[in-house]
Amino acid sequence: MYILSSTTNASNFVTGVDKAFMIIMGISFVFLIGLTFTMLYFIYKYNRKKNPVATQIEGSTKLEIIWTVIPTILVLVMFYYGWAGWAPMRNAPKDSFNIQVTGRMWNYTFQYENGKTTDTLFVPMNKAVKLKLISMDVIHGFFIPAFRIKEDVVPGREKSAWFIAQREGLFELFCSEYCGLDHSYMYTYVKVMPEQKFKAWYVDTTKHVDVAAVESPTANGKRIMKNIGCFACHTVDGNKLVGPSFKGIYGHKVTVTTGGNDREVTVDDEYIKKSIYDPNADVVKGYNKGLMQPYVGQLSEDDIKQITEYLKTLK
């Protein structure tokens, strides 16, 4: 799907990057093959059996100059094409469509200007899209191979990337910078849609819409949690990941560490809210502090109510 040749022009950067690839690899292959065969030829031709006495040659200034100057020119050509393919990635057009990308261990979420939040990146075709890249915890890498773009998502820094998608379809989106346990599962897709189709999708007033459809009253809570990435660290089946499982958690007692002291609390609406807005205040015994970031501003109180309704169903 994303092999170099088969993704021709999936984005506006493909031509420039692939040209640099072809030029650098082309020159490299010519030299690799040429030098290897020269070497093999010498080993064959000047084998001791055929050539028992070596001819002593100490060097040649002329040759040294030739094989310094020619490679220097060639690498400067390579530098130029590398620069030319990369330079347009630096500046997004002013009228770009803005999307905020939030990376955290171990998923990406995408927030649109009208408030929509998704776990798949939806973009219009043939329109510049500018991504604001934000990390909640450690460094992640935002990588769409088919578009030839990659930018690290660094906590504490506001970074950006942009592209114009030129082909309709679904393309892989990976995390390229190692970020811990489930780094290799931190991938999702970019869905490129023709502008009309995208608009229809975009103006849909249901706030959280993604690939899955609404099935039950608690489905909203589940979808919010999926979109925001809760299940990267918490299971619903009792298995222990980085954080405790949600199974049977509501209404039960757990031992938490608060400022170094252990105490018992009952999991209720208030506790769930506190665990989301200030997760490091009470840490369940046996788990590490500091791995989960506060979700203030990302989840509303209404979102949390929906989440709580869903958690109640996990018996």
Partner: peptide, 12 residues
């Protein structure tokens, strides 16, 4: 070493 190609294959 080249910018465009590095960005693509970096961290792969």
């Amino acid at each position: 070493g080249a910018l465009a190609t590095n960005v693509y294959v970096h961290d792969t």
